[in-house]
Simulated scan of single mutants.
Amino acid sequence: MDIFKLFFNHDQSLGDLKEKDTTQEQDSRLADFMKPSPTYSTFYITGTILPEEQLGLSTLQQSSQIIDQLGKVFKNRTIHTAEDTFQKLDMALNHVQTGQTLILNTNTKKSTYNFPALASDDQSAPILGELLQTEAWVISKVQAPHGYDLYLYSRKNIYPDLFAAFKPLIGEQLRFFSINRKRIRTDRQFYFETNSLKKPPHGAEEVFPDTTL
């Protein structure tokens, strides 16, 4: 059986992704403090096959259907990689290696983004912040214990769109859990399906066919 998990984390400060300006005047900092702080959301998309305990989105029996449904959320955006552009998410993911990034926006022209900086631990946060400010969405193909998972960044909270896209997949062979990442603090909680599926940790809610937002 596929245990599909959608982790969400909302209202993160976009300012935390920017480089600190040590020359900024105190009155400017106060003015910035008084302004509403722009925020962004992150979503971690993963899963586990039970009872084999194969951990990773790409290992799931319905991984292709999950990717197809996720792609529908991005149907009006072009997907950019370091080398090319794509209209279909599955093709883009097959094109990139684990550890690489996709940028999704409404610009159909070939990408001129700084993909090497996105892959750098020292430079990725400021570049990511700049991209989110332009309303682009970013997907990282990240290593899982087996296969890969997806990490999605968005200035807009697109949780309702993801919820609606994934819910139709629920059935005898797939259970869907929506999980508040802020409440998951340990690996045991993160991989709760391997030890306490009947009693998920606080913050992990199973989605059923009749579940509504």
Score class of each variant (00 low, 15 high):
P36Q: 07
K72I: 04
K5D: 02
G171Y: 03
R183G: 04
V142I: 11
G15V: 00
N107R: 08
E19N: 13
A125C: 04
Q65L: 15
D16G: 12
P160V: 12
S140W: 12
H202I: 15
K110E: 14
H146L: 12
I3M: 05
K199L: 13
Q100W: 08
K18M: 10
S196T: 14
T186M: 06
A92D: 01
Y44V: 10
I67C: 12
N180L: 10
E172Q: 14
L102S: 03
Q12H: 04
T46Q: 09
T48P: 01
R188N: 13
S64R: 14
Y44D: 05
G147T: 06
L152Q: 01
E206H: 04
Q87R: 14
T186P: 06
T59H: 03
K109W: 09
Q97Y: 05
L162D: 05
T112Q: 11
L30Q: 14
A125R: 15
N9M: 06
I103E: 01
M91S: 15
E53Q: 15
D84W: 06
G171W: 03
R29Y: 07
L14Q: 09
T211R: 09
L17Q: 08
P116G: 06
Q123L: 13
D2N: 07
T48C: 13
D16T: 07
L70K: 02
S111R: 04
F4G: 04
E135M: 10
N114W: 09
T81F: 01
E19G: 09
T42D: 09
Y44W: 07
Q189K: 10
E52L: 13
N94P: 00
F176M: 05
L132N: 12
V207Q: 02
Y191E: 12
